[in-house]
Each structure stands twice: as C-alpha cells, then as structure tokens.
Design a protein around this nucleic acid. Structure first.
Lengths: 211, 211
DNA sequence: GATTTCTCTTGACGACTGTCAAGGTTTTGT
DNA sequence: ACAAAACCTTGACAGTCGTCAAGAGAAATC
C-alpha cells in the first residue's frame, strides 16, 4: 500500500503521522536546497535524493509525484519566510527605527538567502505556465503582500501619516525593487545591497512623504 | 561542414548571409512561440521544430546548440519589444497625454502579449541560475530601464518637475507593478488591466508629485 | 520471539532529451 | 547541363527523466 494514497485520518497512530510528516519535511528541505542551487528546470528527483541521505525511490513513497513534492516544498518554504519581519514591526517604536530594521532584514536576507529568493522567483514564473502551482504561489504572494502592508502601514502609523497606495501596488513596488537587487547581487555587483537599502529609503520617502 | 561553426565573414555571397540569418530568425520566431506557450523548462528542440515547417535536425544546422538558440531568441525578442513606447513619447505634448498613452500601451501589451511577457520573466529567472543567459538578459533589462526612464523623465519635463528617484529604482517599480498585473491577468482576473492602469497613475502621481 | 506493518533500496520500464552523422534534395555557380 | 555548394530529413546514439514494482531491511505489535 502506498502511504501517499491513503488519507492521514486512516493512520491509527498519531506518532506515525508525525514521523511521516517529518520525513516529508526533511525531504522537502533537501528538495528546496537542490532547487535553489539548480533551478526548477534542471532539478531532477535523483538529484534531490542525492542531496538527502536516501535513495531516489523514497521520494515516490512520500510523495505521489513530482508536482506533489514541489507543491509541498512551496508550502514548506512559505512557513519559513513569511514571519521574517514580524519582530521588527513589533519592536520598533519610531518610524526611523522601523525603516532601519526593515532595510536591515531585507539586506541580510538578500545576502544570506539569495539562492532561496531566486528559487522563489523561478517558481513564481513557473506558476505562470503550470496551472498546478498557481494557487500555492498566489497564496504565498498574498501573505508577502500582507507582510509588506503590515510594515508600511505601521510605518505610516508611527509617522502619523496616511497612505494613498493600495496594498497590491505597494507590494509590487517593493517586490520589483528586491528582485532587481537580487539580480544585481547574484551577478556579483557588490553595491547591490547598498542600492537596495537606498531604494527602500527612496520609496518609503515617496509613499510616506514629509509633511 | 557545419555552417554554425564557420564565421559569417567566410561566407562569400552577401545573399547567402542574408538567407542564413533570415532562416535563423524564422526558427527563433518558432522557438519564441513555443517557449511562450510551454515555458523554458518544458520546451524541447523537437517541440520547437514542430512549431516550424522544418524537422528537428535543422535546428542543429542553424544553431550550435540549445543555448545558442535560446540566446538568439532572447536577442531577437529584444529587438521587437524595446521600441514599443517610443511613439508615445515623441508624439505626446502634455503630461496627461503621455501618461494616458503610456498606460494604454502597457495595458494593450499586457492583454495582447501576455504569453511573451511571461516568457520574459521566465528567462530572466533562468538567468539567475544559468550564467550563459545572464549577459543578454541584463542587456535587455538595461534597455527596458532606459525606455522607462525616457518616458518618466519626459513626463517630468512636460510637467515641469524634477525626479528624485534613480533610473534603476524607477524601472524596478514599474517592472514589479507590471509583473504582478501579468500574474493576475493570466490567472483570469479581469480587473488586472484596470488595476495596472490605476497603479501607473498612483505611481506617477508619487514620483512626480503635484506642485 | 514471531509476525505484521512500515520504511527504504534496487533495478528496471518506456518515454523523452540534446546531439550528430549519413545521405537525399534543392539551389547556386559556371 | 553539369558540378558544387547549401539545405534539409531521417534515423540513430547515449543519457536522463519520472515512475513504479519487487523485495530487503527495520520497527512495531502482539
């Protein structure tokens, strides 16, 4: 019997469910690493398995097919990246503090997780072609939009201003900025991180204009 | 002798060079159509040949390998899309006219060339992984940035204002906006085009604030 | 400790990939 | 008209791909 075919409710032991889910996450982690190194187009199941401690056959034991695996990866990825800025929002007490913290986390993430970010943009592009990824990608995009909105609206609140830009547009602007910075960073432009921080400053100054 | 291996200068007849280049462009056109439908990851040489009137072997006669073909496609694509907005810039005599024209061309392009645009974002993502595409993609990105800058700076000139945003940031902002609108459009959101036009209005109003 | 259940490896399958050589067909040059 | 060059097709090659069945090994259950 193939475990992927049966529903979780059929599993008698809670412990089994946990172990099953944990291994799925473990394999998803290996898959994410492979994907972020090679990109979607060049990542095979055998390559993923080689980045784990298992053989290639085990992937079909824990995932029904490749799409199922990638989808799980996307969801797994989401869980990690969405809460990345919450600390800054809740601890900052002045607009300057929030702006600096936001920029710092952005720049750090650009540097430390560049491969993961390029994978995100790759998968988002894939979702423009592959219908099956679209819903999950859209959900991540939405939560990223929410995150940006929490930051910017909190910034406006601290500065005592109002915002005239709609949340989707706001997210699009920062996403475009980050995406460009990522491309520059990955092509070896050492000034990319500073340019990102400066861009964030410029944009925030526009969105929340001086009184 | 394989024609791709010899230099163009070796070809005696000017006419031969033309025919050779024309067929390359013709095949690149078929490749672009296939790529825009399937995406980079799912496009094979045989699939491209089936979208042309030739057999799959001819591709290796006109291109040294797959990377050579895709690279030629990217360059071919660039030649078409970069001059798209020049007419609007040169004919508009008021800022309102320019803004309306810019928005109209953007929206039309979103609707009529959606598949081509998603291919562009796909290839740009590929260039984050595949070194061989990076230079050509960066060149296109640069010319798109120049195009945006021509429009916005002309807009500021007509409105008698100055711009405080650097060209790369300006491009990133509009690119992010367009990319998001494309995703919404391709997922069946009928309001995507209107949202794009509205977003352009909002951004231009910020970038060139009322006096 | 025996037996059932879960977990993982191995090896194979058919299909598909990029590449290329051999040879037929068409066009060109003389 | 004939020879040469250019063009295109066909078919095959060595790999790789996702998938899956058979069975070995480990763990849990009784």
């Amino acid at each position: 019997m193939t475990p992927v075919a049966e529903k979780n409710a059929d599993r008698v032991s809670r412990r089994q469910v946990d172990k099953f889910g944990e291994r799925r996450d473990q394999l998803a982690e290996a898959a994410l690493q492979t994907l972020s190194e090679l990109g979607y187009a060049r990542t095979s199941l055998r390559e993923i398995a080689q980045n784990s401690e298992f053989s290639h056959g085990v992937l079909h034991y824990y995932f029904s097919d490749k799409v199922d695996l990638i989808t799980h990866c996307v969801r797994h990825y989401k869980a990690r990246c969405v809460t990345r800025y919450d600390g800054v929002v809740s601890t900052a007490h002045t607009p300057e503090e929030l702006k600096a913290g936001f920029g710092r986390v952005l720049v750090d993430s650009l540097r430390d997780e560049a491969s993961m970010h390029r994978l995100w943009y790759d998968l988002r592009s894939q979702s423009l072609f592959e219908e099956s990824f679209r819903a999950d990608v859209a959900a991540i995009d939405q939560s990223l939009e929410n995150m940006i909105w929490r930051i910017v609206s909190r910034y406006a609140e601290l500065a005592g201003r109002t915002i005239t830009i709609a949340p989707p547009t706001m997210y699009a602007v920062f996403d475009g900025l980050f995406q460009q910075s990522l491309a520059r960073y990955l092509s070896g432009d050492d000034a990319a991180a500073d340019a990102l921080a400066e861009g964030v400053d410029q944009i925030l100054a526009l969105v929340i204009p001086a009184r």
